[in-house]
Design a protein around this nucleic acid. Structure first.
Length: 799
RNA sequence: GCGGCGGUGGUGGAACGGUAUACACGAUGGACUCAAAAUCCAUUGCCCGUGAGGGCUUGCGGGUUCGAAUCCCGCCCGCCGCACCA
């Protein structure tokens, strides 16, 4: 009856139907024991076109984890959704006129279909897309909660602007100073925008990294991004204007070495400072030139230093020296105060500027002959109170002195900026705010009126203003506060806002009275294992952490860190290069699944190498895995045809060899699962199947049945269909209802082993020895080995 | 420049103080076949040797150890993130 050929398509369809009909992977919110529950989550996909191999890898990893935890007695929440607002769908709409909703829905249907074809164990009852009003209603609600707390605010700021696409771009869409979409150089524009106050959380985002099990390189990137610097703010007074200009410095110990003073071209006071000095024209020309520079030019470290004298001086508060003021584009308005004290003796950039402008350079301490010296050392050329001190000690004393004199104080500066969430785009979540035509200003939409539904428009292309502005009937409304005429905010939110809380919604996805019930949330959160690509190391993962902290502060939940453990998967390349349509080296998961089956595709992708490293796809490698699964299946079918046999009381001979091989595999796979070593776990199952195959004529039916059932059970997290099929053939039971197999320690030992004889670390011979032999017996055995005798001069230490 | 990661056969990789190269791919030879596919068997780190056997080998140079791919020090090379951040 059984076909003699492994036919994954039939096997896979059969099990998928069982899982769909029985809703096998759905978990209830009631009766969940938090101690025995586990939230396993892969980053939600952005539905565009159809899934690629990166998705296949992501969900293969996550599914292996989910299955392993279930079979170890955990109730596993493993949901799925779609990050469905975003630019690609909108670009597609601009090009074709097809509504982003239509193309997104099509793509979602394709993702759903393929996830089912892959046999991923998803709780479909919690599925949603972030572009549905039932979801973004709560995104708006969260925005209002943040607004109420002062964590969302509006201000004018410099933003990235692409003149070609006539739109603002997110930071992440600016690659090396150029627009990701059209390659045009990005300009900076001043616009009024909505921000979220993530900088309030800089220290907590930094400190709490120590509490989560994340890869070191991701933590390092986040630390880097937050960029905390301890230092001091010091006030430099311009006597001729009677104005104080504070600077931030991490090296107040070098204050005595300050030789000049520099402001950023964007500094609001620059023109005013130059006024009446004769430098006005030169300054105006320089500032205009600096503003016209692209981000790419401006950021070039190699570029020679430029600047213009401002015609005035400031007083160095520590020694009363007058320092000339300059405007120069190497000073950034966004960091610190937009002004610096320049210490050419101990800062490479100030040194380069001083050289270009022929300014004096003095030594403040430390180092050899060569300047600039940026290391530590003892202070010279300062004040008698500080000279001779180690600079780190002097630093504290100088800051204390500044503080007493009211000239400065210790402070901390961050690289992290507040999160700009306004987007002049159509396909996103509307910002629920109305601008009153009278006195009320920006007024939040009342919660009862949510959602503010995204209206349809005809023209999606940005023309220097948000496409939503064209929906005039929608824009025109009344002020919720005073009833006067009002206009809706026409910008939409950054899609990273949508994905900053989706993992919370999964916990209580069908709740239409609230974003979530805090009691239900507490049963699942935090996510026990999060899995995704390293490309989200900063943005998404930082925003989600910020959201949890802010929402917990507001009292809406009580979880400081959303993702207790993180696993970042590596990329799959082809011929050593990133897959791309233009290179023509794209591997289509659909094609692989159709040709070789989902089990092969999933198992191969995990077998190819450690899942956190980048690996190269090879078709012949995938075929090798297919051969392995086919052999498992054929072996299972063969054994299933044999009469069932009682387990022998004491297995021996080939039966014992096979039994031990099975227990060794259980031991190895179990250990590997916990550390994401799926590649070696799979190779351990391969060894077991090879052994079963090798001994198919020698071992008895019972041992063979045991070995193949064990292999099916162990391979199930990677290849669920063939695992379930073979296990059922051999045992009549459903493998996912079985506990994870546990190795019997007694069967991991053998009674003889190969004793390796080393002399001075070199292997000289191998002899068979009994496991229970004494140390003396082993040493004697070694001494007798022919090769040992040949090499042994004096006494040897034998293990 | 700062931070992180890595360098092992023809290839992907395994081992992470104790038999280096598991598992797989590829290659070569063979079986089955009219033939092919599929399947199966054998060999496969490099060098010397007909052979038994010997020597060498984890980017380079040192060190610790009875023993180092693994630990320590110094280099070289590659990848990733950040970067005129004061």
């Amino acid at each position: 009856m059984a076909p003699d050929r492994y036919t994954p398509r039939e096997i896979e369809r059969r099990w998928q139907e069982v899982w769909a009909e029985e809703k096998t992977w759905e978990v209830p919110n009631e009766g969940v024991d938090p101690a025995r529950s586990s939230y396993v989550l892969e980053m939600l996909p952005y539905p565009s076109g159809e899934p690629h191999v990166g998705h296949l890898k992501n969900y293969s990893v996550g599914d292996a984890v989910a299955h392993f935890r279930r079979r170890n007695g955990q109730t596993v929440l493993h949901p799925m959704g779609y990050d469905a607002f975003g630019l690609p769908a909108e670009n597609h709409a601009i090009k074709t006129g097809e509504h982003p909703r239509a193309s997104t829905e099509k793509s979602i249907a394709e993702f759903q279909r393929q996830f089912r074809d892959w046999g991923i164990s998803i709780d479909w009852s919690r599925e949603f897309a972030t572009c549905e009003p039932e979801y973004y209603r709560w995104t708006q609600w969260i925005f209002l909660a943040l607004y109420e707390r002062g964590l969302a605010y509006r201000k004018e700021a410099a933003v990235n602007w692409c003149p070609n696409d006539a739109t603002v771009l997110a930071n992440e869409q600016v690659i090396d100073g150029r627009c990701e979409r059209c390659g045009h150089e990005v300009e900076v524009r001043q616009l009024e925008q909505w921000f979220l106050r993530i900088t309030d959380y800089a220290d907590r985002l930094l400190d709490d990294l120590s509490e989560i099990r994340w890869p070191e390189h991701v933590k390092a990137m986040q630390r880097n991004w937050i960029g905390r610097s301890e230092g001091a703010e010091v006030a430099f007074r311009c006597e001729s204007l009677g104005v104080e200009y504070p600077v931030f410095t991490t090296r107040p110990d070098t204050l005595f070495g300050a030789m000049f003073f520099v402001l950023a071209p964007e500094h609001p006071d620059v023109e005013q400072i130059a006024a009446g000095t004769g430098q006005e024209d030169a300054v105006r020309a320089y500032v205009a030139g600096a503003m016209a520079e692209s981000a790419e030019e401006r950021g070039d470290v190699e570029k020679p230093k430029t600047g213009v004298f401002l015609g005035r001086t400031v007083t160095n508060p520590v020694n009363g020296e007058e320092l000339p003021m300059y405007v120069a584009d190497y000073v950034l308005m966004e960091y610190g105060t937009g002004a610096i004290m320049a210490v050419p003796g101990h800062d490479a950039r100030d040194f380069a500027f001083a050289q270009a402008f022929d300014l004096p350079i003095t030594r403040g301490g430390g180092g050899g002959e060569e300047l600039p010296y940026t290391g530590d050392g003892s202070i010279v050329n300062s004040h008698p109170d500080f000279d001779g001190l180690q600079n780190r000690d002097a630093l504290e004393k100088i800051v204390a002195w500044l503080d007493r004199e009211g000239r400065g104080h210790a402070t901390v500066s961050y690289r992290l900026r507040d999160w700009l969430i306004s987007r002049q785009r159509y396909w996103g979540c509307p910002i629920p705010v109305v601008y009153c035509s009278r006195e009320c200003g920006a007024v939040p939409v009342p919660i009862a009126d949510l959602p503010v539904v995204l209206p349809d428009v005809e023209d999606y292309a940005p023309r220097g203003r948000a496409p939503l502005a064209a929906a005039q009937d929608w824009v025109r409304t009344t002020c919720p506060r005073c009833g006067a005429e009002g206009r809706r905010e026409t910008d939409t939110m950054d899609t990273f806002v949508d994905s900053s809380w989706y993992f919370l919604r999964y916990c209580d996805a069908r709740n239409d009275a609230a974003a979530w019930d805090p009691a239900v949330l507490a049963r699942w959160m935090p996510v026990d294992q999060y899995i995704g690509g390293v490309e989200h190391a900063i943005l998404h993962l930082m925003y989600a952490r910020f959201f949890c902290k802010a929402l917990s502060d507001i009292g809406l939940m009580d979880v400081q860190e959303p993702f207790s453990a993180l696993f970042t998967q590596g990329m799959i390349t082809r011929d050593g290069a990133k897959m791309s349509k233009s290179k023509g080296n794209v591997v289509s998961p659909r094609e692989i699944v159709e040709r070789l089956g989902a089990d092969t595709a999933r198992t191969y992708i995990l077998f190819i190498g450690p899942p956190d490293s980048d690996v190269d796809w090879s078709d012949s490698g995938a075929e090798g895995v297919h051969r392995f699964l086919a052999r498992l299946w054929r072996g299972g079918v063969e054994v299933a045809a044999l009469p069932a046999e009682e387990a022998p009381i004491t297995p021996e001979g080939p039966d014992l060899v096979l039994l031990r091989a099975a227990h060794r595999a259980m031991e190895k796979v179990t250990g590997d699962m916990g550390r994401f070593a799926f590649n070696t776990a799979i190779s351990a199952v391969m060894e077991l199947v090879n052994e079963g195959w090798r001994l198919r004529d020698e071992a008895g039916p019972w041992a063979r049945r045991f070995a193949f059932a064990a292999a099916a059970s162990l391979v199930f997290p990677f290849a669920p269909h063939v695992g379930a099929e073979v296990f059922e053939l051999l045992t009549g039971r459903r493998v996912w209802e079985e506990e994870w197999p546990e190795a019997d320690p007694a069967l991991l030992e053998t009674d003889t082993f190969e004793l390796v004889c080393q002399i001075n670390g070199k292997v000289r011979d191998r002899v068979a020895a009994r496991a229970d032999a004494s140390r003396e017996e082993l040493e004697a055995l070694c001494r007798e080995a022919p090769n040992v005798r040949a090499h042994l001069g004096g006494g040897a230490v034998v293990k």
